[in-house]
Amino acid sequence: MDNLEGVVARATQGDKEAFAKLYDEYIKKIYNFIYYKTHHKETAEDLTSITFTKAWKNIESFNKGSIQAWLYTIARNTVIDHYRTVKQDKNIDDVWDLSSNTDIAMDADTVLKVEDVKKYLQDIAPIQRDIVIMRVWQDLSYKEIAEITGKSEANCKVIYSRAISKLKLKMPIVVFIAFLFLK
């Protein structure tokens, strides 16, 4: 995409073509991020719709920072709103927080696929889980993750090292690898 800053600036002025460029640039990342937090195609599509609709309706309020981080934040909050509405439970952030016998629809192939790592990802805090997902499955750089989470790179490392201390005994290598992915 040409000159991101210029495109963002035009989008904030209500330029639909500029927003369309942002849409094209980020739709896949945002959809995938939401899917990794819902494990259900139709739900991911609905929440992606809501995310980009909110973004378009509120683009004028975006004034500085990373547009990617802004979109991820909307996506993350949209997922949280969805689960807290559906399950009426303030402690649920995404599908990883649900128990195994939940009645929430999930794609069967995905359920099988994440089975091995679910128990590890469930044991860490949502923000740490998001970081692992973004780094390992979305291949985002550490700098991008820091932008999205609104934390400094150094701060993210601290958060992660604490996660390691907590979980090392359970699955030292898994956690250690997750940390090292965030080098």
């Binding site: 369309a20 849409y23 094209d24 739709i27 896949k28 959809y31 995938n32 899917y35 990794y36 494990h39 195609k41 991911a44 599509e45 992606t48 719709s49 980009f52 794609d107 192939d109 995905t110 696929k113 994440v114 091995d116 790592v117 390992v136 499955w137 898994v174 690898i177 997750a178």
Partner: peptide, 19 residues
Amino acid sequence: FLSSRPDTKLDNVFVKKLK
């Protein structure tokens, strides 16, 4: 870790329609 990454089933028709 790598093999546990789900297939997100991103549908191009959905992408276009949403836009």
